[in-house]
Computed example of a mutant assay.
Amino acid sequence: MWSARNRTEAVTCLACGDEVSRSRAREYDKHGDRWNRADKTFEHLCKRCDDELCRHPRDELEELLVELEAGTDGTSRFLTAYFRAVEERYGSLEER
């Protein structure tokens, strides 16, 4: 059995904010590499929020969000810029 090594019993879901026991949560690593554990701090999702996640690849997504300064403007202004940037980079959905 693995030792607890300074683990807390409860964690907070990064999506909904609910506090759940660690045993009922899922570890989340935004880089997708939860096996490389050296010098990392993991975030957690409750099972309900984890089940609702989209499992599609997110290559370049974080870079695009930083570039568009996500969270600094209103939602509709951000979404307009986001859809424009995605269409410029990858083409419109109609083309696919």
Rank of each mutant, 00 (worst) to 15 (best):
M1L: 09
W2E: 12
S3Q: 10
R5C: 05
R5Q: 08
R5S: 12
R5K: 10
T8P: 06
T8N: 10
E9R: 14
E9V: 14
V11P: 04
T12N: 08
L14E: 07
L14T: 06
A15G: 01
A15V: 06
C16D: 01
G17D: 03
D18I: 11
S21R: 11
S21W: 01
S21M: 05
S21I: 03
R22T: 08
S23W: 00
A25C: 06
R26F: 06
R26I: 15
E27K: 14
E27R: 13
D29V: 04
G32K: 04
N36H: 09
A38V: 12
A38Q: 14
A38M: 09
D39A: 13
D39L: 10
T41D: 02
T41N: 06
H44M: 04
R48K: 07
C49I: 04
D50E: 13
D50Y: 15
D50S: 12
D51H: 07
L53M: 14
L53G: 04
L53F: 10
C54A: 08
C54E: 11
C54D: 15
R55I: 14
R55T: 15
P57C: 02
E60N: 07
E62K: 09
E62P: 06
E62N: 10
E62W: 05
E63A: 15
E63H: 12
L64P: 01
L64T: 05
L65P: 05
L65K: 06
V66D: 10
E67H: 03
E67R: 10
E69F: 00
A70L: 09
G71P: 09
D73H: 03
G74W: 00
G74Q: 06
S76C: 05
S76Q: 12
R77M: 02
F78G: 04
Y82W: 12
R84E: 12
V86H: 00
E87F: 02
R89S: 00
R89G: 00
R89C: 00
G91N: 03
G91T: 05
S92D: 03
S92H: 05
L93G: 08
L93M: 06
L93S: 04
E94L: 15
E94S: 15
E95P: 03
E95C: 12
E95L: 11
R96S: 11
R96P: 01
R96G: 08
R96W: 02
R96Y: 03
R96M: 08
